[in-house]
Design a protein around this nucleic acid. Sequence first.
DNA 1: GACAAACCTTGATCTCGGTCAAATTGGCGC
DNA 2: GCGCCAATTTGACCGAGATCAAGGTTTGTC
Lengths: 248, 248
Amino acid sequence: MDEIFKRTENQRKDIHNSDIPVVCRACEARHGGMCGVMTPQQLTELSKFTTRKKVNPGSEVVGQGEQVAAYANVLKGVVKLSKMLHDGRQQIVGLQFAPDFLGRPFSRESTISAEAATETEICSIPKAVLDRMVGDSPELEHKLHQQALVELDEARDWMLTLGRKTAQEKVASFLYMIALHYDPESTERTVFDLPLSRADIADFLGLTIETVSRQMTKLRGDGVIQIENNRHVSVPDMERLAEVAGIE
Amino acid sequence: MDEIFKRTENQRKDIHNSDIPVVCRACEARHGGMCGVMTPQQLTELSKFTTRKKVNPGSEVVGQGEQVAAYANVLKGVVKLSKMLHDGRQQIVGLQFAPDFLGRPFSRESTISAEAATETEICSIPKAVLDRMVGDSPELEHKLHQQALVELDEARDWMLTLGRKTAQEKVASFLYMIALHYDPESTERTVFDLPLSRADIADFLGLTIETVSRQMTKLRGDGVIQIENNRHVSVPDMERLAEVAGIE
DNA sequence: GACAAACCTTGATCTCGGTCAAATTGGCGC
DNA sequence: GCGCCAATTTGACCGAGATCAAGGTTTGTC
């Protein structure tokens, strides 16, 4: 992922010949995402239209099938993207962590619903404003293109997990992914809090709550993980976890 | 999808103030994909480096984990993108039909393998050449961005199928998808040839060959489809098929 | 600190899809 | 048309994970 952003970083410097503040004035927050490639003028312009919002767990940001009027940057927390069948069966198709960009450029209607999984803060950007800026700024489009490609890679990884792994491997894969996300270069023991409930994990893995719970219990019994208060997880040996996850 | 390409079409006209031949001189073929947004100069330049190739079913275009030296446009046939676990379990994560663009921009190494599913022809483009052109041409990047977003939508649709649908619904969903692809506006009976073997369909759906076969037999018994010679399928009522697929 | 409401775990049982094995069919060269 | 090989179908059986049903924990509120 570092690799991927390097080019953008260089482009940016080439083009503007100076460092640019990556703090978006609109939110008075550091957007790790697309604001990094914006010029000061663009950021100033953008900040006239953006609004910062808190979103509580369970609240919907965009509903499936709704018209979309805004994009957003995730400033804090985790947003889950999901799809639902008419009879209520649900599948989570993506997780957006801060500072991801949230939205589907160039599409009027959302085919997925976005919902806060944890306490979340977003910086909302009207669709029309960003669409115009993207049209004028190749660097911005490049950045969004990159994020789309990263999300595509992630989605395809997850398809392998959904289609071909056992329940045990699925749960281990999920824990491994989250562990790496929150603690990418941990050497020894890796510790983190799960951002999702058992129900959400089940929806992410295409399993039932009961199966997720049983597999967690099994992983605990086998010494692969430790759990405190349901959400707090500790991994003594990441390689062991990767092995159980079928990641070799 | 038409909607999506409209913008590019307009941009192109604005910028170049003329119609552009969408026939890529390199392949003497009509690339429906990215060549449509190239200037005549770009096409001439590109044609110095491209090569047209026939690929037989089962032949690998790019292997998982390999260095990638080229992109390609699919001119004819179907290419399957797949991922494999160390023990051989396989999942197809995407299908590329002509005239799709094949490749993962801005990444040196492929995490998926691409293999011809049918008799296929591709137009191969050296990575370095296209990367340079994309850097110089916002329209080209826009086009590739669009394709990435469409593929992301498709991947997420498929995640719902993989994670939450029954075997019956999975097979029906697959048939529905293929039927729509080859005959998008059929009103009455829809007829087509399956581009994949039962084994490939199984790898696409996260099932076994036997289950795919049984479900096909069941769909035939229920009158939802007719099959001749294993590959030739006929759908008398697409709405009925959609219903069985859980698409409402 | 008591109560309620989520949330999570555990147990018993059932079922869908996997596994193993054996026919059957289709494609193709001669 | 015949024979061969690969692809597909069909059958019998099994097991991983779903379902149904309690029973525990955690969290938040008054």
